[in-house]
């Protein structure tokens, strides 16, 4: 780099630029908070949904599935699973019917032995997720 461009100038760009864009990021974060009520489906965030989210976490579902495209890519996207599997009954039936020892030669979901309450909570959580405004993602029902 040329001599006219000094180390002090480079340092100032680093500190100035970083602080400026950090502040801009915080401003956008603040604005996002004000915009969320219209998009995040919080009005349907019930106790049951929160319980479902805890079950989702404590069984490490994200270790195989994606949820709104984030997670592992081993098993289907679940952000729209409520719609794809035809509602709560479809979801509960699928989870409950997984064979304990898997399916020979194929990827299979473990049998988690959930109670009826737990299954309802998971279905409620996936319903809540499916009703968030995700800018029309995923592109189609296959996720």
């Amino acid at each position: 780099m040329s001599q006219a461009f000094t180390k002090a100038m480079a340092r100032n760009i680093f500190y100035g630029g970083s602080v400026f864009f950090m502040l801009l990021f915080l401003a956008l974060t603040f604005d996002t908070h004000t915009a969320w009520p219209q998009r995040d489906n919080h009005e349907n965030l019930t106790e049951q949904v929160a319980h479902g989210k805890r079950l989702w976490e404590e069984n490490n579902c994200i270790g195989c599935h994606t949820l709104l495209g984030e997670g592992a890519y081993f098993a289907p996207e679940l952000g729209n699973a409520f719609k794809r599997l035809g509602g709560a009954d479809g979801i509960k039936g699928f989870i409950a019917s997984r064979p304990k020892d898997g399916i020979p030669g194929r990827r299979s979901m473990p049998q988690f032995n959930f109670s009826e309450d737990d299954l309802n909570a998971i279905a409620a959580f996936l319903k809540y997720v499916s009703e968030m405004n995700t800018a029309s993602w995923p592109p189609n029902i296959q996720g």
């Binding site: 480079a10 760009i13 680093f14 630029g17 970083s18 864009f21 950090m22 801009l24 990021f25 956008l28 604005d31 996002t32 915009a35 969320w36 998009r39 995040d40 489906n41 709104l68 495209g69 984030e70 968030m132 405004n133 995700t134 800018a135 993602w137 995923p138």
Partner: peptide, 22 residues
């Protein structure tokens, strides 16, 4: 590192397309 933070901080936005954010 100036360019890293100038691009990378707001660049976080590439994760905010489809998760219920504006």
């Amino acid at each position: 590192i100036a360019m890293t933070l100038i691009t990378g901080i707001i660049g976080t936005g590439h994760h905010y397309y489809w998760i219920g954010t504006p």
